[in-house]
Each structure stands twice: as structure tokens, then as C-alpha cells.
Design a binder for these strands. Structure first.
Length: 855
RNA sequence: GGGCGUGUGGUGGAAUGGUAGACACGGUAGACUCAAAAUCUACUCGGCGCAAGUCGGUGGAGGUUCAAAUCCUCUCACGCCUACCA
């Protein structure tokens, strides 16, 4: 009798064994090639979810595989431990954010360990620990001294629910990314990091990232948004109340200058602010725009004539009105534009609304000047210049060049490159974050905290109410003195955006306990990260900030590499069907069942019918969450890992299904039973190796190649299919009882290695059952056995096509020539039927694949 | 509005110019069993046919090619991201 496979016993046993032998603890070793693989670290929210299981299984498969391939693997884990939920829990449940966070970490660490991950836990970091955040306080001061961190008064996105400032990227459709609240504009003094200083490099270095998904690179490139154009000065025609004489505008379409019929400036433009002091109509308009409710309907273009006129820079005797318009952004370019309605959709909508002229200056090649006009659709494609004096007849590109040169020569314009990327606002009015190490002296001086005074620790005794700035309310903490002068001073009460911590943690993993932030020799050995794995939702923010940080720290002479992540992989979400009851509530998958008799889905309690919705990302709001722990308890980690890798390609969404998990569980047991049969069933002979054995070994070689390349290419769903196929194949051969026992013992040894990256526990158990030495985790990946193959005897299947349609499949020798195959085919009855009485025009032969006869 | 992606059986998906549907889930039939579970075996794209077989088939319409799910053009549907960036 074969003993039933018990994941409860087996998995814990091997997890302990790996730990005792410290097999995952990485040491710097210059003789070995390193491989640094890491997944995005989790926020300790309470317990792990299926997204984590997928993410960390993916990384673990890579880590274990690379280790077996002989690499010195670094596979660390940590906690993105600062953040709002801890503070919200503190307010709601009167818990200390620190206690709440650390107890969550404890729970989640246990869960992650139960997955059997090959993590070097000796490198574990938590970003809320002073030993971690003290280093970033130091970086900040160094960035400040270098002019890369600065404070400015600015309009910021204010989340009225979280009572905090959000970065532009954190505002989605006008709502807070976490709270979902409608965001309002508020003026505050904020700390910024000069990400814009690296715009050009952040953009151009994207080309170096050959192991990144194109999609992510495109998203970053669009976000940085480089545009090359011209900054043109328009002279302001004197108006008594205006101090400035010129209006600077930015354009990428200087070729359309003759089509300009107005100028527009942002409501925040200095000129607009000046005008509103004396013009109440303008003042009322601007305050209306600034009101939040005006921002909701962003489609409606609103403007007001400022009363000012400017001179057209090239068209003689032409004056343009200057409007104040809601669609012009102060943050981009110079906050002012010239409007060319014929060739810009926004300008056209605005012009149509306020009855401004529309002058077409570019027309399609085949049009006639007299009949060409613009109605509701601006013409934005290439064409021929018209109504443009000396530019007439030129193409858009030629016209650009001509007008550029003229305006620059005249001194009324200069070349300008603008980026959409803005500086990163890092101030947050929160408690549970890293304190910004700045003091404000009573004489008004702003000073960075002295290095020896670091870290600036968060105060322990704090009462969180959810109103206002917690550190600002803590008077004892806030009050300090200037160590140099002894003058009274107050501390900065804002904390860093939590993206600050996650922008450099991959560097800290290299020497997580070093006194200084980094140990140079460790950094230079391990960095860059060879493979980073995480969700696509971080395609812009986290990855861009990390890239910026790497470049900024490089320029502070910490190291000399340019990019943090050599390879990036973004995995899809884990989804589940949604269930909606007649009483209008979302039902958990556990509370419904499929009734085969009526062919419908029903509620377990009450037996009432349930509507089945489409598969969506597991979320509390849709109540379609499956708890990983209960799955691991019931089926074991190997089952969960196997299912995670099966079916869907990792970059796509994976639908979690009960039947799929059952199937994975059955497979684990099947492997176990088969292995036991090989080892203990006395039905195999001990005879010599025959040709059949060699053939079998050759086929196993084939599977090794396929599995290896599929792992390298991240095609894990195909690896799973390969292993299924391999198992079925070996089982069939076994049932034939024609092979030698040693052949199967060799096979099982190889097999245990091949399944190890995905399902390591059962792999160790099989290895142990065979009484092999050591553990699979320390073995080298299977090498191909060199076997003697008789080329003339090995056959391949060849498809015979008539006019491209497959009509017959024949077996021929691997090295068969065209002539040999032709001869074989012509005497084949089935094929002859199709050729008979027809003229053979052409025969195409692709060795080992097809022979196509064209008749 | 812009960008990216996807469309193949009942389902997840294989096949990146050469046998469409690997592998898995589900389903049907059978074996074992008092019975069930588990396990094993066979079948499972559609039409016609008792069968051998044959015709059709990768969202739709064209095209390139000896050969197209794959390459090109147009078109439809869905999904994701992004959005007044001048």
C-alpha cells in the first residue's frame, strides 16, 4: 500500500529543513555569477492575498531555477510598512500604528513562509524601522544641499477625506487614489524633489531597458512627455494697468502661426492675477473656475476676454485678443498659448463657442484653397501651407523650419523643449511616515537637521484623531532648539510620501544591516536587480521614482550604475467570478454552488438562484476574495503554486476556479502515487538497456530542453503543460513494462529536479524517498545525457499537403531527401487520388516538416 | 479624444509562416465498487455519413504566399491605461 501524500506533514518538514540548513541565505561570492531576483514588497495590511501568492510564486520559480542553474541567487523580502491604513486603524481601533504594523508583519510573514518561498529572511527589512528610514533622511539632506530638494508654495491636490496632499499621479479622474474622494485645490507650502532635473535621462535611458515590457516603457515615455517646440514672445499692446510688455507662449506648431486668431492664458498666469486686481469681471470668472464644482465638467471650455491685445509676431497689422481660459494649464510650458482653431481641436471648440475667427493655414494635398474650410473638426495632419504669406506651398515640416529660423533670428523666439513630467511633491500631513529632517529657526532660517542628530524619530506617545496634522499637534515633539545657536526652533511636521521608502529598498537589501546606507562592495556585486516582478499598476509611479532615486544617488557618489532594474516582469491580476443575489448583494464564492440538475448557480443557504457575473479582480467590494491561507491549509502550498502557474500566461489575468485547484491537487497526488509505483512496485525488470530505453531517455532530454527554455522565457503555463505531458508520457511507458528499472530511477531523479522550481515540497519528498543524498534545492539543473542515436533509424512525421491542404501524414527517416520522399508519396494511394490526372506544377519540401504538391 | 492590448472549442489556453485546438478544466460513456468518493480507460470544434471518409472552421471583409490563427490593408467588438500637456 502506498502511503497517502500528506501536505500537512511534508511541507512544514521541508520548510524547517531548508531553514535549518540556511540554503537561501546569500553570501557575496566573487567566484560565482550573481542573480538578483525580487518581487515588489507587500504593504503589511493584515494578511496576504492571492495577488501576493501569484507574485511571489513567480519570483520563487525563477529564484529556485537560477539557483539550480549555478547562480548565486539573492531573493530578499521586506515590508513597505509606512502608510495610511496603519493610521486609519489607529484612529478607528485606537491601536498604535507601530504595533498594528508589526503584528500584521508577523502574521503575513508566517503566511509567506507557509508558501515555501526561497527567501533570504536574514535580509528582511521594514521601512518603518528607524534603522531603515534614518538613511533616507540623510539622502534627503544631501539632495537638499545639492538643490534637488526644495520647498515651494503651490496649489496642491487636497484630499478632504484623508486630509492630505496627493501627487498628480495619485489623483485618478479627479478623485483620491485611496479614498476616492473628490479632490479640491489648496495652497500649501510643500517639499519637492526635482525629478524634472532628470527628465531627459529618465527618457533616454528607457532604451537601455531591453528586458522591460514595451508597454511599461511606452507608459513612462508618455508620462515624461517630451515635446520640442518654440517659445515665442508676443508684444503686449500697451494697457495702463499692465506691467509686463511681453507674453511668452509655447508651441509645437509654429507653422500654424498665421492661423492664430487669439491667445489664451491660464487663470493662474501672473498676467491673469494682475488683471483680476482691477477687473472685477475677470476676478469673478477666475474664482468661478477655481471652485471645485467647475472642475467636474472638464469638457466645457470656458474663457473670458482679458481686454488685453497682443501683436502678431509676423503678420503685419494684426492684433490678437488675449483670453483667460480654463483649458490652459499653468504647470505646462509658459501657461500661455496662441490659439489656432483650424488646426487644434481644443482651440476650435473654444473659437466656435466665443465666435472667434477660424483661418485654415494647412490643407490636404488634393484640396483646393477656395473650397477648403474647417467646421467642427480641426485638420491636424500633414498638408500644404496656405494663407501664410512666405510659408505658402510648403509642407508642415518645411514651414516649421522656415518660421523657426526666422523668428529665432528676429529675436522674438527661442527653441524650447518641454516635459510633461513635473517635480515630485513628497510632503504628507501624516503621522505614520518618515519625518522630514528640517527645522525652522525662530529667525526664519530653514535648516537641515545635523547628521549626528539623525534619525529624527517619530514620537511614540501620540493620539490620532484623523483631523489635521498629527505631528503639528504634538507640541513637545515639534519644539526643538538650533544646536548651533541655541535659538528656539520648530520641526518640520510633514512626513515623506511612502513612495520615498520604496524608491530605494532594493539597494538596501544588498547590505540590510550595514551601518552606512550601503556597503559599496555588496552594492557593486548584487546590483542591478536582474529580475523585478510586480503588478502593472506600478508601471509609472514606483518604477519612475526608483529610477530617479537611483540616478540621484549615483550623482551623490553612492555608486555608479544608472538603472536599478535590468529586467522587469509585470504579472496579471487574479480574478474570480462574481455572484449577485436577488436581494442585491455580492456573494462570496463559498456561499454559492452549482446545481447540476437545474444547470444553475444557487445560494447555499436558502437555495435561491444567483446571478453569475463576469470574472473580476478579487476585491472586498465584490466579495469574490479567496483567502490563500485556507487554500494552503486544505490543499497545500504546492497545489496553490501549481495552480498559480498553470493555464494562464503570467502576464495575463488568471481566473481562480475551484475546479482548477481541485485538478492541481489531484495532480500532486498523481505524482506521488506514480513515484511510489516506480520505487516499490516489483514489476520492472532489471535487464540491460535496450534501444527502447535510449529512445525514452532521448525523449526525456527533449522535455528538459522545452521546460528550460519555457522557464527562461517566463512561459510558466507552458512549463506546466510540458510537465503534464512528460508525466503522462512516462506513465504510459511505465505501464508497457518494457523498460529497465534503472531507466525509471534515472527518470525520477531528473523529474524531481524538473518539478522543483514550481512544487518544491513534493520534489524534496520524492528525492528523499529515493534515498538520494542531500536536497533537491541544492542540486544542479538536469543536464542532457549524450546518447548514441542511429540517425538513419530515427523517424519523423511528415505532413503531405496538396495545394497547402494536409492530406496525409507519413513517417520518413530524419535525413530523407526530397527525391526519396517524392518517391514514397507517388505510390501512396491516398495521395495519388489527388494527383491523378492533374499536372504537378511544383513541389515544396521542408525537411522534417512538410511536402507540398501544387497541382 | 489619445495610447496599448486582446479576439482560436462549453471554459482557461497551445500552435508566431508549415499537421489548428497541445496541456488542463468541464462533459459523455465504460471499468473497479453493495454504493459513493478516489482512481483508471475511451471519446469530446461543427456539418454530412453506419463507416472509411469528406466538407467547413481561428470576430468580419479583402490581400500577399506553394502554404496564413500567424504577415499587410480595412472593419467590428471587448478590455486596460491615459487624458485639455499647446
Amino acid at each position: 500500500m502506498i502511503e497517502r501524500y500528506s501536505h500537512q506533514k511534508v511541507e512544514g518538514f521541508w520548510q524547517t529543513k531548508w531553514k535549518e540548513n540556511q540554503v537561501f541565505e546569500s553570501k557575496l561570492d566573487n567566484k560565482k555569477n550573481k542573480y538578483y531576483v525580487m518581487e515588489m514588497f507587500p504593504y503589511p495590511s493584515g494578511k496576504i492575498h492571492m495577488g501576493h501568492v501569484r507574485n511571489y510564486t513567480l519570483g520563487d520559480v525563477v529564484a529556485r531555477y537560477k539557483k539550480m542553474k549555478g547562480f548565486n541567487v539573492l531573493h530578499p523580502m521586506g515590508w513597505d510598512a509606512f502608510g495610511l491604513p496603519a493610521e486609519n486603524a489607529a484612529i478607528k481601533e485606537k491601536k498604535n500604528p507601530s504595533d498594528w504594523t508589526y503584528s500584521n508583519i508577523k502574521v503575513m510573514k508566517k503566511q509567506l513562509k507557509s508558501m515555501g518561498l526561497s527567501i533570504d529572511w536574514s535580509r528582511e527589512i521594514a521601512t518603518c524601522h528607524p534603522d531603515y528610514y534614518k538613511h533616507e533622511q540623510k539622502f534627503f539632506i544631501e539632495l537638499y544641499k545639492k538643490g534637488l530638494a526644495y520647498k515651494k508654495e503651490s496649489l496642491v491636490n487636497w484630499d478632504p477625506v484623508d486630509q492630505t496632499v496627493l501627487a498628480n499621479e495619485q489623483v485618478i479622474d479627479g478623485k483620491g487614489w485611496r479614498s476616492g474622494a473628490e479632490i479640491i485645490q489648496k495652497k500649501l507650502s510643500q517639499w519637492f524633489l526635482k525629478t524634472s532635473a532628470y527628465s531627459e535621462e529618465l527618457l533616454s535611458d528607457l532604451t537601455k531597458l531591453t528586458n522591460w515590457p514595451e508597454k511599461v516603457k511606452t507608459m513612462q515615455s508618455n508620462w515624461i512627455g517630451k515635446s520640442v517646440g518654440l517659445e515665442i514672445d508676443f508684444s503686449i499692446l500697451k494697457s495702463e494697468n499692465i506691467s509686463s510688455q511681453k507674453l511668452k507662449i509655447f508651441t509645437t506648431r509654429p507653422d500654424t502661426i498665421f492661423g492664430a486668431t487669439f491667445c489664451a492664458i491660464s487663470p493662474n498666469h501672473p498676467l491673469a492675477i494682475e488683471i483680476k486686481k482691477t477687473n472685477t469681471e475677470v476676478k469673478n470668472f477666475i474664482s468661478r473656475i477655481e471652485k471645485n464644482d467647475e472642475k467636474i465638467n472638464i469638457d466645457e471650455k470656458l474663457g473670458i476676454d482679458s481686454g488685453i491685445k497682443v501683436k502678431h509676431p509676423v503678420k503685419t497689422n494684426s492684433e490678437l485678443p488675449v483670453y483667460i481660459a480654463n483649458f490652459v494649464l499653468m504647470e505646462y510650458g509658459s501657461g500661455a498659448i496662441f490659439g489656432c482653431p483650424a488646426h487644434d481641436q481644443r482651440d476650435l471648440e473654444f473659437a466656435n463657442k466665443y465666435k472667434l475667427d477660424v483661418i485654415p493655414v494647412v490643407m490636404p494635398k488634393n484640396e483646393k484653397v477656395d473650397s477648403f474650410s474647417i467646421k467642427n473638426q480641426a485638420f491636424v495632419e500633414d498638408g500644404i501651407l496656405i494663407n501664410s504669406e512666405f510659408l505658402n506651398g510648403l509642407s508642415v515640416e518645411q514651414a516649421k523650419k522656415t518660421i523657426n529660423e526666422k523668428l529665432v533670428k528676429d529675436g522674438s523666439a527661442k527653441y524650447k523643449t518641454n516635459f510633461r513630467l513635473r517635480d515630485w511633491g513628497i510632503s504628507r500631513q501624516r503621522y505614520w511616515g518618515c519625518p522630514i529632517p528640517i527645522i525652522y529657526r525662530e529667525d526664519g532660517k530653514v535648516l537641515p537637521v545635523k547628521e549626528k542628530e539623525l534619525p529624527v524619530l517619530l514620537p511614540q506617545n501620540i493620539s490620532l484623531t484623523g483631523k489635521g496634522n498629527p505631528l503639528g499637534q504634538n507640541k513637545d515633539w515639534k519644539k526643538t532648539i538650533c544646536p548651533e545657536t541655541g535659538m528656539a526652533a520648530t520641526r518640520e511636521t510633514d512626513t515623506f510620501d511612502t513612495f520615498f521608502e520604496s524608491s530605494w529598498y532594493f539597494l538596501r537589501y544588498c547590505s540590510p544591516r550595514s551601518k552606512e546606507a550601503f556597503e559599496k562592495k555588496s552594492l557593486n556585486y548584487w546590483m542591478p536587480v536582474d529580475q523585478y516582478i510586480g503588478g502593472i499598476e506600478h508601471a509609472i509611479l514606483h518604477l519612475l521614482y526608483s529610477r530617479f532615486f537611483t540616478k540621484a544617488l549615483r550623482d551623490l557618489n553612492y555608486f555608479n550604475f544608472d538603472e536599478p532594474f535590468k529586467g522587469l516582469f509585470t504579472q496579471g491580476m487574479v480574478t474570480h467570478k462574481t455572484y449577485y443575489s436577488s436581494s442585491q448583494e455580492w456573494l462570496n464564492p463559498e456561499d454559492v454552488y452549482f446545481d447540476q440538475k437545474t444547470n444553475s448557480t444557487k445560494k447555499v443557504v436558502g437555495d435561491t438562484p444567483v446571478e453569475v457575473g463576469r470574472s473580476e479582480k478579487m476585491s472586498k467590494s465584490k466579495n469574490n476574495v479567496i483567502d490563500p491561507s485556507s487554500i494552503i491549509n486544505k490543499y497545500g502550498a504546492d497545489t496553490a503554486r501549481w495552480f498559480m502557474m498553470s493555464d494562464s500566461p503570467p502576464e495575463r489575468d488568471l481566473e481562480w476556479t475551484e475546479t482548477g485547484v481541485e485538478g492541481s491537487y489531484k495532480f500532486i497526488n498523481k505524482i506521488w502515487n506514480f513515484s511510489n509505483k516506480i520505487l516499490f512496485e516489483e514489476s520492472l525488470n532489471n535487464s540491460e538497456m535496450t534501444e527502447r530505453d535510449i529512445n525514452f531517455k532521448n525523449n526525456i532530454n527533449n522535455y528538459i530542453v522545452r521546460i528550460s527554455t519555457n522557464i527562461e522565457k517566463f512561459h510558466f503555463n507552458k512549463v506546466v503543460a510540458n510537465i503534464y505531458e512528460l508525466t503522462n508520457y512516462a506513465q504510459k511507458e511505465y505501464e508497457c513494462k518494457d523498460l529497465a528499472k534503472n531507466t525509471f530511477l534515472d527518470f525520477l531523479k531528473t523529474y524531481a529536479k524538473l518539478i522543483h522550481p514550481i512544487i518544491p515540497h513534493i520534489s524534496e519528498e520524492i528525492w528523499n524517498l529515493m534515498k538520494n543524498e542531500g536536497m533537491v534545492v541544492d542540486q544542479t539543473w538536469p543536464i542532457l545525457e549524450k546518447l548514441k542515436i542511429d540517425e538513419t533509424k530515427s523517424k519523423v512525421k511528415l505532413a503531405i499537403q496538396i495545394n497547402g491542404k494536409t492530406r496525409e501524414i507519413i513517417e520518413v527517416g530524419e535525413a530523407a531527401t526530397k527525391k526519396e520522399v517524392e518517391e514514397l508519396v507517388m505510390i501512396n494511394k491516398k495521395i495519388f487520388k489527388y494527383i491523378d490526372g492533374k499536372e504537378v506544377k511544383k513541389i515544396i519540401y521542408v525537411p522534417k516538416k512538410i511536402l507540398n504538391i501544387v497541382v
